[in-house]
Simulated assay, not measured.
Amino acid sequence: MEEVERVESFKFLGVHISADLTWSTNISHQSLLTSCCTLCFNCCTVEDKRKLQVRAAERAIGTSLTPHTDICTGRLQQEASIIIKEPSHPGHSLSHLPSGQDVQWSRGKGTKSNTCSAHSLLSYLFSAHSLHATRETDRGHGRVREPEHKRTADIHAVLRELTASVAEQKVRITFLENENQDQAANLERQKTETDQLKLQSKEQAAKLETEINQLQLQSEEQARKLDTEIDQLKLQSEEQVAKLESQKAEIDQLKHELQARQVAFSASLVEHGGGTYTGPFNTETTLIFKRVVTNIGNAYNPYTGIFTAPVRGVYNFELTLHGHGDNSYPTAARLFMNKELIFTAWEHQTTLSPSASNGGSLLLDAQDQVYVRLWAGARIFDDYNHHTTFRGHLLFSM
């Protein structure tokens, strides 16, 4: 007995039937409106259904099409009813599940029993068509036909394999559902934890922001307080500086007044060396007493011979002159205050050494000047003995 040839797919009545019962081949070869496509629509994959392009067909014919799921379900139920009612039909045994319970056909769309019956019916059609094609092939080649009970046994074996495969798929689906539920619960728990962390983070951020604002306010208050204290210290410092300046001015004034009250000078005409005559001159000439013995208060200027009163008060001045006897030149000089003649010292001898002196007390205002001028045509003498002198001092201030 020859072996039956097993093929991956064959064409029966214009329909491509594959061993894995997929509809991809028919999708690429058949029109959208063929009965075989709608009859076995449930065998199509998602990709196959996408290739059908139902919307494009509706636009092409200008009317709406009945959903393929409804057509397929109706035809499967109609065919299954015929098989169940006809005991002599080769597929009548498909109406019984392996447990011995009858299949409950329902008019509802998409139910579990409907789907199982559809797969059973398609399995039967595939097996029947395959056997028919095999018989036809055997007839053409003169092969011996297989016994009917063997073909029935093959169908039952295929059905058992399909049942085991479905059971295995159910177990896997249940496992995947449980795993998905666990993952969903885990994700929900993680989401809850994440929300809690976000809430805690927001609370901490708000707390930190509040603390930062408080610190900023405290810092600003401290800065304002420090600025106020600094301004006060600056003001106090300025007041103290002004007070010190005032005190310094008062001290300087007191020193000046003290120094002004201590005014005294004494000077001679010649600083050093042998005897020297001064004069005669055609006009009166201010005498400069170069040798300064005392100059308390520095009121006398040894470079100009002028005394300047530092304060208002009463001053005493004395003038002493020395000369040699001569018929032509007297020994004479005059004391001036601010260009005003005050006293005159005069002596004229023809022999020996004449001398003359004069002095008095003067009321001077501050910056008044007192000086001595040589009489025009007169002559005086001085040497290392310092005979010719000019002196003065403050008696009291006013």
Rank of each mutant, 00 (worst) to 15 (best):
His119Pro: 05
His348Thr: 02
His132Tyr: 07
Asn282Val: 13
Asn114Phe: 06
Tyr384Val: 09
Asp383Tyr: 09
His89Leu: 14
Asp365Ser: 10
Lys11Gly: 04
Val370Pro: 03
Asn26Gly: 06
Gln236Ser: 13
Lys150Gly: 02
Leu269Tyr: 11
Leu187Thr: 11
His92Phe: 09
Ser246Asp: 13
Lys170Asn: 14
Asn338Pro: 03
Glu168Val: 05
Phe265Cys: 02
Ala164Arg: 10
Val372Met: 09
Gly392Glu: 04
Gly275Asn: 15
Leu287Glu: 07
His149Arg: 13
Ala378Met: 07
Gln183Ile: 05
Asn327Glu: 09
Asp326Leu: 01
Gln183Trp: 02
Ala60Leu: 13
Ile306Val: 10
Phe12Ala: 07
Thr174Glu: 12
Thr115Pro: 01
Gly108Met: 07
Phe265Val: 04
Gly377Thr: 08
His324Asp: 04
Asn213Glu: 08
Ile82Leu: 07
Lys112Ile: 03
Lys198Trp: 06
Asn316Lys: 02
Arg107Ser: 14
Ala206Met: 09
Leu131Arg: 12
Ala80Asn: 00
Ala206Ser: 13
Val171Met: 05
Arg312Asp: 11
Phe396Glu: 07
Val46Met: 01
Gln53Lys: 15
Ala133Tyr: 06
Cys43Thr: 06
Ser113Gln: 13
Leu131Asn: 00
Phe381Lys: 08
Met398Gly: 02
Ile84Val: 11
His322Glu: 00
Leu125Arg: 15
Ile61Glu: 07
Cys116Tyr: 07
Glu47Asp: 11
Val171Tyr: 03
Ser397Lys: 10
Gln53Gly: 12
Glu347Met: 13
Ile306Glu: 01
Phe289Tyr: 06
Asn282Lys: 12
Gly279Val: 05
Ser201Gln: 11
Thr63Val: 11
Trp23Cys: 04
Pro87Ser: 04
Ser99Met: 07
Gly62Ala: 10
Glu245Ser: 10
Asp231Arg: 13
Leu226Gly: 06
Leu364Gly: 05
Gly108Lys: 10
Gln216Arg: 14
Gln216Thr: 14
Gln349Thr: 02
Ile296Ser: 14
Tyr300Ile: 07
Lys248Ser: 09
Ser9Cys: 01
Gln101Trp: 04
Pro330His: 11
His156Arg: 08
His29Pro: 00
Leu94Cys: 04
Ile342Cys: 04
Arg50Trp: 09
Asp231Lys: 15
Ala128Tyr: 14
Cys37Val: 14
Arg391Phe: 01
Phe343Tyr: 15
Arg135Pro: 06
Thr276Met: 14
Asn180Trp: 01
Glu245Asn: 14
Ala376Tyr: 00
Asp20Lys: 09
Ile27Ala: 12
Glu86Asn: 13
Ala249Trp: 03
Thr66Ala: 10
Ile155Met: 12
Asn358Thr: 15
Leu39Gln: 15
Ala205Gly: 05
His92Asp: 00
Ile27Arg: 03
Asp368Ser: 01
Thr45Glu: 15
Ile173Arg: 15
Leu121Gly: 10
Lys290Thr: 09
Glu250Met: 14
Pro310Met: 04
Ile296Pro: 00
Leu215Ile: 12
Phe343Glu: 08
Pro280His: 07
Ser18Arg: 10
Leu364Trp: 02
Pro354Ile: 07
Asn26Thr: 05
His129Lys: 05
Leu235Met: 13
Glu188Arg: 09
Gln53Leu: 15
His149Asn: 13
Tyr384Ser: 15
